[in-house]
Structure formats: structure tokens, C-alpha cells
């Protein structure tokens, strides 16, 4: 297991470097965009000395490297500053809005894996026959439109014409759920309110499907392609020559070796959902990080922009580390690289 721990440490080290790079980049970009955040925050009637004092308070009149130094010093204390938009600490804002987005992305990711991989396996198992053709056409259709287009289509079909699902929001206003984790599906269960839990799930269905559809297609296509390649390997012929069941060959003997190359891309897709979620959230009025993110960018709320971007970058890195660990776990060549071979 020591090989896996070394891998984990190396990935964590690289992640820190990546985070520093991202923070510098966003720090510079946010300050290069024209517009004075202090002036925007204080409104058109603010006096010059008020603006000057806010600028001084925000260290805006100092040089960029000095400003970045202040930022790092605050960050080391877990302080991301005050948002000019909400007038609250940025950390508090993120803690409020992030769980809704994570809940959505998490559900979409699970749907993507639970549907995409089996569909890919099925297509590869029946390659060249009708299930394969059907799955390939369907995945091409889902891949060819981005999440927010699916969001609009699904909303029209299943919330408007056929009112099967709620049209927007996370939870019916009639429920009053104590906030513990911010994940409504968990909080409702913690509160023991099963009706609220069902309602939260009900609200989650359409946005999560809209967000996951192109990922499902992508995962299915990728899994199929890698598995069809694997099917030409001698060890599959060997499994066939020994009369193993075709479904077992598909699920284990062909799928396992094919999963490793697929997993990296699926992991990236998963992380990319965070960005796509912004638009899907906008369509479904989902009270997640997107509304906050868009608002703070338009107001040049520097601290809030930094906080939002950093939290997205961290999520990206965490997903990547998880994928790397999964690959190490699945690939015996990596897992056993520390041991000598026979």
C-alpha cells in the first residue's frame, strides 16, 4: 500500500502548486478587468473620501504583489475577506451556496456513472448488433447538446407540458428544515421528515438529469470504445475458449481492463459538471453557487470571486485525486509497483 500513499502525497503536493498558480492568475485577472470595485460597491452617490477609505481598507492602492501577500496572509487564517455584494464573510456565503451545487453535481455524477458505464458495457457486449446501434445513436444525441439546452427541454417536457416534476427550486416552501449539512436530501432525513426528503429528491430529478445527460453519452461512448478494443485481446479469446458466460466476460474480463483508460476522462467530465452546473442552475432557479458567482463577477466583488474560483479549483483537484487513487486501486501495475516482480 506504500505505493498508493506515495502517489497520494505526490498528488497533494502538485495540487498545492496548482492552487497557488490558480489563485495568482485569478487574483491578477480580477484586478485587471476595468472598473473600481469600491466605487461599484458604494454606488453612484458615494463621496470621493468614502471611496478612498474603502480602497485603503481593501489594500487596493497598494501594488499587486503586496495585495497578493495580504490575501495569502488572510487565507492562512481561513479568512477570504468580506463580500461587497452580501456584506458577509465570503466563507459564510460559500458555505451557504456550495452545498446546493455539490448536491446537484453529485447526483448528476452518480447518474452519469450508473447509466453511462452499463450502457457502454451493453453496447460493447452486443457490438455491431442493434443494442449497440441504439445506444450509439442515443449517446450521440445526448452528447451533441450542452446541459442547459437539456435543462430547457426537460423543463418544458416534464415540468410544463407534463407537470410530473416541479419547475424550479430545491424544496417546497411549506417545509421548514433545519440546516445541518446544507445538503437538503441529508438534512431532511436528519430531520426525520420523509415527505420533505421526497420533495427534495423530486426537485433534484430534472436538474440532475439535465446536467448528466451529455456525461452519460460521453461515458457510454468511451466505455464502449475501450471495451471493443479490449475484446480483440487474446485474454478475451481465452475466456471465450474456456466457455465463460458472455455476460460475465463483458462485466469482468472485458470491462475491468477497459475501465482504467475510461476513468480519467470520466473524472474530468465529473469535475467539468461544476462549470456546467452554473447554467443548469440558472435555468432551474437552483439556489446554488452559480447565482452568487455570476452576481459577484458582475459587481467585481474581488474577494467573492477569489473564493468562488478557489473552491471550484479545489473541487476539481479533489475529484482528480480520487480518480488517480481509483486507478491505482484498479490497476495492479500501479498498486504493486513498489514490490519486485517475480
Amino acid at each position: 500500500m506504500s505505493a498508493v500513499i506515495r502517489l497520494l502525497l505526490r498528488r497533494l503536493g502538485i495540487s498545492v502548486i496548482v492552487l497557488i498558480g490558480v489563485s495568482m492568475l485569478i487574483f491578477a485577472i480580477a484586478r485587471v478587468i476595468p472598473g473600481d470595485p469600491a466605487r461599484i460597491a458604494l454606488g453612484p452617490n458615494a463621496k470621493a473620501e468614502q471611496i478612498a477609505s474603502l480602497r485603503a481598507q481593501m489594500h487596493l492602492d497598494e501594488s499587486l504583489p503586496v495585495q497578493y501577500g495580504h490575501f495569502l496572509a488572510d487565507l492562512s487564517r481561513g479568512d477570504l475577506g468580506i463580500s461587497l455584494y452580501t456584506n458577509r464573510p465570503v466563507t459564510k456565503d460559500i458555505a451557504q451556496f456550495l452545498p446546493a451545487t455539490l448536491e446537484l453535481v453529485f447526483c448528476a455524477g452518480i447518474i452519469m456513472i450508473m447509466l453511462g458505464l452499463p450502457l457502454g458495457i451493453l453496447a460493447a457486449r452486443y457490438r455491431g448488433r442493434w443494442p449497440d446501434h441504439l445506444i450509439r445513436v442515443l449517446s450521440l444525441v445526448t452528447v451533441s447538446a450542452p446541459g442547459f439546452v437539456w435543462a430547457v427541454i426537460l423543463m418544458l417536457l416534464f415540468a410544463f407540458y407534463l407537470p410530473l416534476f416541479p419547475i424550479a427550486g430545491r424544496l417546497n416552501d411549506s417545509f421548514d428544515i433545519a440546516r445541518v449539512t446544507g445538503f437538503l436530501t441529508i438534512d431532511t432525513l436528519l430531520a426525520g421528515d420523509f415527505a420533505a426528503f421526497t420533495d427534495a429528491l423530486h426537485h433534484l430529478v430534472l436538474p440532475a438529469i439535465a446536467l448528466s445527460l451529455s456525461g452519460i453519452g460521453q461515458a457510454a461512448r468511451l466505455t464502449r470504445a475501450n471495451m471493443v478494443e479490449t475484446y480483440n485481446k487474446p485474454y478475451i479469446e481465452m475466456a471465450q475458449a474456456y466457455g465463460f458466460f458472455p455476460s460475465r466476460i463483458a462485466r469482468i474480463y472485458a470491462f475491468k481492463p477497459s475501465l482504467i483508460p475510461s476513468l480519467t476522462i470520466i473524472g474530468l467530465d465529473f469535475a467539468a459538471m461544476l462549470g456546467n452546473a452554473f447554467l443548469v442552475e440558472a435555468v432551474f432557479a437552483w439556489p446554488g453557487l452559480s447565482r452568487y458567482g455570476v452576481a459577484v463577477i458582475l459587481r467585481k466583488d474581488l474577494n467573492a470571486i477569489m473564493g468562488t474560483v478557489l473552491i471550484i479549483a479545489i473541487t476539481f483537484l479533489i475529484v482528480n485525486i480520487i480518480v488517480d487513487l481509483l486507478i491505482a486501486f484498479l490497476n495492479p501495475r500501479i498498486r504493486h509497483s513498489a514490490r519486485g516482480s517475480a
Binding site: 479469446e237 481465452m238 475458449a241 466457455g243 475491468k256 481492463p257
Partner: peptide
């Protein structure tokens, strides 16, 4: 026919290392 494979008849292949599944012990 599949019932016969692996029981009444079996096969050895050209390249043993690539004929065994790489991710299964």
C-alpha cells in the same frame, strides 16, 4: 457448445502472458 468449452475441451494459446487477464489475479 459453450458447456463443452473449458470442461471437455480446452485450449492453450500462443502468448501466455497476453492470454491471461492483466487485471485479475
Amino acid at each position: 457448445c459453450a458447456k463443452l468449452r473449458g470442461t471437455a475441451m480446452s485450449m492453450i494459446f500462443q502468448d501466455p502472458t497476453s492470454s491471461l487477464n492483466p487485471v485479475i489475479t
